[in-house]
Design a protein around this nucleic acid. Sequence first.
DNA 1: GAGCCGTGGTG
DNA 2: TCACCAAGGCT
Length: 362
Amino acid sequence: MPSSMASASAADPSLPALLLAWYDRHARRLPWRTPPGGPAPDPYGVWLSEVMLQQTTVAAVIPYYQRFLARWPTVRDLAAAPLDDVLTEWAGLGYYARARNLHKCAMAVTERHGGVFPDTEEALRDLPGIGAYTAAAVAAIAFGRRATVVDGNVERVMARLFAVEDPLPGSKGELKRLADTLTPDSRCGDYAQAVMDLGATVCTPRSPSCLACPWQAPCAARRSGIAEELPRKDRKAAKPVRRGVAFWLTDDDGRVLLRRRPEDGLLGGMIEVPSTPWREGSPWAPEEALEHAPLRGLRWTPLPGLVRHTFTHFHLELTLVAATAEAAQPPAAARWVALPALGGEALPTVMRKVVRAAVAGL
DNA sequence: GAGCCGTGGTG
DNA sequence: TCACCAAGGCT
């Protein structure tokens, strides 16, 4: 077979060069990046952005990244902050265990490493919230280490370039090995970002722009006409619906009752409007729901509307009931909060929807 | 290994 | 409307 027709070979040294040349022309300018070929960016900013970018889009991350960096310019500043402040600043970004681990990691870097991020994959991997992907990304981007970065983009690009037809997640190991064979020894940070940029902007999940791809010639899936079908994936289970009743309780001064969720699990450590448990199956009968009310002996009235929200593995439907308590002490683990102060609370998006629905319904 | 863990955009 | 998807990590 003529070399010009050869499909991707793991040993082909021209593949990284082709990609880097493309990246030199097409790299997106992002707040946590330095230009291609330039000095490496600050490890703190790289780490912060990579944690925020876990399963999260660039567009969603940018404003959060800017606010975090302005409020806590160094890892020491972040380590010294109260966890509550970090959770409040993170509210709306999702996957709140990331925020708790971010704070833990900042404290570990400050206390165990003197405020300086370790510069090897292995040492980074030992820090909270840093897994295989993030350790490789920080090592390559911030420290120029040769490290094979494998995220969803890289898996898709490798599956197509080498026409791997075995479905994910079973093919993860194979895709990682293929990615590793391509990883160059120089310009490690640029290369890592280049593969991910390629996946994000050219080798997209649907309607990939193969004509704009620096790897179009060697791409085995494109040649077979199956690029858009790869990577294959096993079907995911359908999401069940869970239902609950939220209690909008205000006092004489119009303040609303809020409480903190348990530290672990769904929305761990975040602030919420009290509610019944969220259960799958039958809707809550009124008298049944009131057994879970935060205060007894109140006259609850239904509010119009239904709050819908989708989590990773279930849909949620919340109805609202409202009551007023006269000069009541807040129940244990709960407190009264004035409505104008809600912006400063660690309210996840689903709870901001509850607030909006309650205010609109009263 | 597989389930859990948010949110917003997209087709 | 709805399933899929995004620079994953933890248990």
